[in-house]
Design a protein around this nucleic acid. Sequence first.
DNA 1: TCTGGGGTCCTAGGACCC
DNA 2: TCTGGGGTCCTAGGACCC
Length: 391
Amino acid sequence: METVWFHVDMDAFYASVEQLDNPEYRGKPLVVGGLGNRGVVSACSYEARAFGVHSAMPMYQARKLCPQAAFVRGRMERYSQISRQVIAILHEFSPVVQQISIDEAFLDMTGTQRLFGKSREAALLLKKRVKEETSLNISVGIGSSRFIAKMASDYDKPDGLYRVSPGKEIAFVDAVGLRKLWGIGESTLSSLARQGIRTVAQLRTYEEGRLRHLFGEAAGTYLWKICRGIDPGIHTGSTKSHSISTEMTFPIDVTDGEVLSQNLLGMSHEVMFRAIEEQVVSSTVAIKLRFSDFTTISAQTTVATPLYSAEQVYALAKELLHGKWRTPQPVRLLGVGLYQVESSQRAIQQELFDDPYQRKRELEKTVLALRAQGKQLQKAALMHPKETEES
DNA sequence: TCTGGGGTCCTAGGACCC
DNA sequence: TCTGGGGTCCTAGGACCC
């Protein structure tokens, strides 16, 4: 049976939702992103793109290119809500729906012909359903693999529908071009250019062994496959998250250790709350620092038993910070994360129940429950970090 | 006026073990 | 006193994606 994958991508998602909810933005340049002086563009309307604005662009640059645009802060909860609505529609079309981000999903449409007709007809039906229900446009790519479908959805944006016929994969990747192949970024592009490789066809003249020698085992094989339209295995791994992290770029670089500690404490609570919510534990804590010259460093430590309390996370994070930072080095970004997280059900069973930190975790769970009811106990705790440390 | 935040995967080098 | 060669684990950093 012919394998058929759909890739569904919502067009200019955040900006489209804002235009939907706010009629005054419709048909006009709109930029969604961080509004501070250090923000970047998360999404922008097609009207703004006409001015050269694109996502990940620094906000000051977007303002310069398109001063007449409306600039708004993202409303993630609203976007998640619409995202769930769309994903629910996708489930009407296939039992295998693989969501890969807030605005993208793969559908295995293999063998659905009797239900929805040919793949193109099924895609039209899907686009119509989403439009009726949410008033939003999606682009659908159809191909024999996830890799091909993914690039096909991008090929005909916005409101696109593009199908790559089986057997036409090589011609398609040639048409897409090196720059837009999934997994090729700025850095790989210039490495390839240094070898004189500027087109997909040129890349295809290199043997796999040569590519592995030049770019490393994994990257070499990856390049060898994608220039032939062969799926390198994108999004085939487990969809479970392996880490929980948070980070913050300060509006102005921080040189005060007290301020860093305060933020570290808040972030330690945040990641631990999320771990509790997601019912996972971790024994590995990492911090991330970015200095004013944008150099970015990280440090991590793994302890023998899983971490059950935000205080433990904070204590470890603080030690890591002191190993990497000295007053008054200006810090631009600070981050904290838990890594190699695993299901807490299993981990707790392996642990001693008289661990003193278990009690703290129970307490934090209670705080979490209260916070869910709108009681901001966490804030009070953060205002008295010394007490928290000694308790 | 610079360059977000949340993730994943890969690699290189050192420690350690046999 | 003249130093092999795996394998694995850990850490730090880099590339990439949305």
